[in-house]
Amino acid sequence: MNINQNPIILNVDNLHASIQDTEILKGINLTVRSGEIHAIMGLNGSGKSTFAKVLAGHPDYHVTQGSIQYEQQDLLELSAEERAQAGVFLAFQYPIEIPGVANSQFLRLAYNTVQAKRGKEELDPLEFDDFVREKMKLLEMKPDFLDRSVNEGFSGGEKKRNEILQMALLEPKLGILDETDSGLDIDALKIVAKGVNHLHNTDNAIILITHYQRLLDHIVPDFVHVMEAGRIIKTGGKELALELETHGYDWIHNDQKRTVGAST
């Protein structure tokens, strides 16, 4: 399948997580090495988005068992902002709107906060303006994007592009895209995919969470994982997504039964 021996960025071992005493994740195992793209697919309610939120440190979810190693650190020891500073980035399925705060202001605040924590140079408004405009070209965003309030009145596609713009600014080591393709028309999808491909390199890794195989035509994964009931029940290469598209999720059960049957 893949013989990548690059350093491991993320190692998830038997991860269990709950929200308000309801267990959502029931033993996830996943290893992600630098340079890789992983797609996690699955039906609604399978736990995909919860997994993304747990990785990013959402306080409503409690890890009850298992571990997450990120770059030789215990990720679970870090708060959400420390994870962001350490290079974990989550592109949200539903980015929030912040009326009254200009996008440029917000982007610079996030950028400079993270830069400072990483011991890198902060940018003043003018320098940042040049910097961010360059990144915006990649996502074919209009300049007035900067003056508008954060995500307020943005279309679905604009919000998603704004997420990828933030990813471009914060240069994560591990980018997690939670249903970034949902609700996008094909043109917007291509722009977003182009942006993601541009940002992907041998030093970082990307986890794509999606319902649809369509995204994977444009961002080609090294691995496809299928989630169900809080577990990864099948892992394969990019062709797995195509098979899912053709046969549907039920096919996996039949396929598994066959496998189980064969081994006994």
């Binding site: 990013a56 959402h58 708060s79 962001a84 929030i96 912040i98 009326p99 009254g100 705060v101």
Partner: peptide, 28 residues
Amino acid sequence: NDEIFYLKSRGLNELTARNLLTYAFGAE
């Protein structure tokens, strides 16, 4: 909480996130 989490996931600390959201609530 989701809004605070969004801002924290962009590297902002809890206090800055809260202040920004409070400000935004009034800024409208």
